[in-house]
Nucleic acid binder design. Structure first.
Lengths: 337, 337
DNA sequence: ACAATGTGTTAAATCATTTTAGCATGGTAG
DNA sequence: CTACCATGCTAAAATGATTTAACACATTGT
């Protein structure tokens, strides 16, 4: 049984018209003040035949002819990370709404993998890229620019690079969450952060620092930076903090918070009696044990839709380029208890 | 500045050969006892030119000519669900290793969305599909079969459909986890399950039931089924259970467990004093508070690699079809405390 | 009656690649 | 000397769509 898919040609034959006409009808080029005109009856006939034969346009042919795939690529550090998984879902939904499909890729914060993914996606002919850039990825990102591939940076931006981006106001978030800790009466607060110099991390640190300075509580070494390949070191950091009489801990990311909470729990310390804890992004684990943890909530859905919309605005430009847009989303403070 | 990508034609011109020859070299058709022959020097020259010009093959043209896209589609209920997000990551890695890219789609357990995704992916010309089928999706899945699209079912299978599938031994898992509760001394055990009749859920229930019957502890109504659109009803179910003196709760899925734990926590009950709890899949939330929760761990990485490998085995068949393969993975019991 | 305009349609080029069929050339066996 | 084979290469067809240029034919205006 040979089931070749039905093509525009088959429809033309069946409807007794030329393939061009079928193409016009299929893309309803016949409407409005277009230069292509097709007779209403002919159009109806062609549509009827197409429907009867179950016609589905061949994407590869279209892509080849038009250089457009209606596919976008999304590159994040790890698609199984809750934050990115949630965003991925929103991106997927929005993209489908707008008639695009999405290719996902994970870099593990590794520049080589990023380069590779950019290559692969470029070869697939994606129409645009949404990227959460890893540390030191300036060169790769610049390459995308010179390749003229429409692009939006997500969650983080890169120093000295003017690109479209959708970001949280991490500075404000950092300040807000610090204020929350101060409002609880904490004086001795330390932040546990990432060694990786990503813009979102840096801004959170800066927000924290500025807020502490304003309160006259800043001190040398009040920020600890954990290497992402040495997450276990967090244990000693927290034990030391306890000894120094730290009252409040601010974690720069959710994964740091989870690791930290594990340590706190293992040492038999209680929240908020032994430590006041604050972090970024909520987690099931907080709610389930009624942990009094304040956190900054990021508008996930907005991240997704804004990134897709901004990207497609650039993709669907028939000519020229737009000047880079920076979309800054607002953090929301969630207080528990 | 017009930066058209370099094609096989450009290379041919530059190297002073025909485009066919370039194609042969690019796909190193010249090796072995092949019917295509190309001079070693010519081959070297062409490769050198291709490299110098930075040639990248055009995927759309290839797809059009060969009907192969080196892309697979993955359809799950929700890509932001931890279980699927983890599997997605493994699928992505394995697929990339094998030189394929992956399109993801979420159905929200909704058959219409499933149908739509199958259509979209088919139009994109995917070489195969990995699907976690939703309830009542027999017709959609059958359609994929008749469309001759290679397919592997993941996590769940469908009654009366012979297809490739990669599944957990949920029967065994259900029994193992029940035994763990029994071993802890629980006698009065109830299971909180899903109303959705998915094979994995049903098997877990059956495993539980058989094990309870063997222990002579089975009773009518020891399984509660929560509707996925009425998750809040879980609250009353657990409160009632407490009143009836239930000692052990077995949750059929991780999301049920999380909702359940929230209820338990809100009511001030403690684990394991007030309830012994067991479930499927681990969760950060358990570890962070040293909750003594036994659970069945699924071999996530295996799910991903086995599904990809099985799918590609079918995709890369040059001729004919393989008879359906069922791969059953082993659950692992994790005891905490 | 003739030009101008509008309407419906089509042949052919194009996109980048793979693959088939076959053309030279040179050497070797009979 | 002829027939045959191996080697190295190429022209051209085919894949399925979009888009351009142009061709008929009908209608309208002058």
């Amino acid at each position: 049984m040979n089931t070749r898919r039905v093509s525009i040609k088959d429809i033309a034959a069946e409807a007794g018209s030329s393939i061009a006409l079928v193409s016009f009808v299929m893309n309803n080029r016949a409407s409005g003040q277009n230069k292509y005109r097709v007779n209403k009856d002919t159009a109806r006939r062609i549509l009827e035949v197409a429907d009867r034969l179950g016609y589905q346009p061949n994407n590869a042919a279209r892509a080849l002819r038009c250089g457009k795939t209606n596919t976008i690529g999304v590159i994040v550090s790890d698609i199984s990370n809750k934050f990115f998984a949630d965003i991925a879902r929103c991106i997927e939904d929005r993209a489908h709404q707008r008639n695009y499909t999405v290719l996902f890729g994970s870099t593990d914060e590794n520049t080589d993998k990023l380069d590779n993914l950019i290559n692969v996606f470029q070869n697939k002919g994606i129409d645009g890229l949404i990227i959460a850039p890893s540390e030191n990825s300036e060169e790769s990102i610049k390459r995308v620019s010179t390749l003229q591939i429409p692009m939006v940076l997500l969650d983080r931006e890169l120093p000295g690079l003017e690109t479209n981006s959708v970001l949280l106001d991490n500075l404000k978030g950092g300040a807000q969450i610090t204020e929350a800790l101060l409002a609880r009466g904490c004086r001795h607060i330390e932040m546990i952060s990432y060694s990786m110099r990503l813009s979102n991390i840096i801004d959170r640190e800066t927000g924290f620092k500025l807020c502490m300075e304003k309160a006259g509580l800043a001190s040398e070494g009040m920020i600890y930076r954990i290497r992402h390949d040495r997450f276990d070191t967090i244990s000693q950091v927290i034990i030391d903090a306890k000894e120094r009489g730290v009252e409040g801990l601010l974690f720069a990311t959710n994964s740091l918070a989870l690791s930290g909470l594990r340590v706190i729990s293992r040492n038999g310390w209680k929240i908020p009696e032994d430590f006041a804890v604050a972090t970024f992004d909520g987690n099931d684990a907080f709610e389930i044990n009624n942990l009094e943890i304040a956190y900054i909530q990021q508008p996930i859905a907005q991240f997704g839709t804004e990134a897709v919309d901004l990207l497609l605005k650039n993709v669907e430009l028939k000519t020229g380029t737009l000047s880079p847009t920076r979309i800054i989303l607002s953090p929301k403070l969630i207080l528990n208890g």
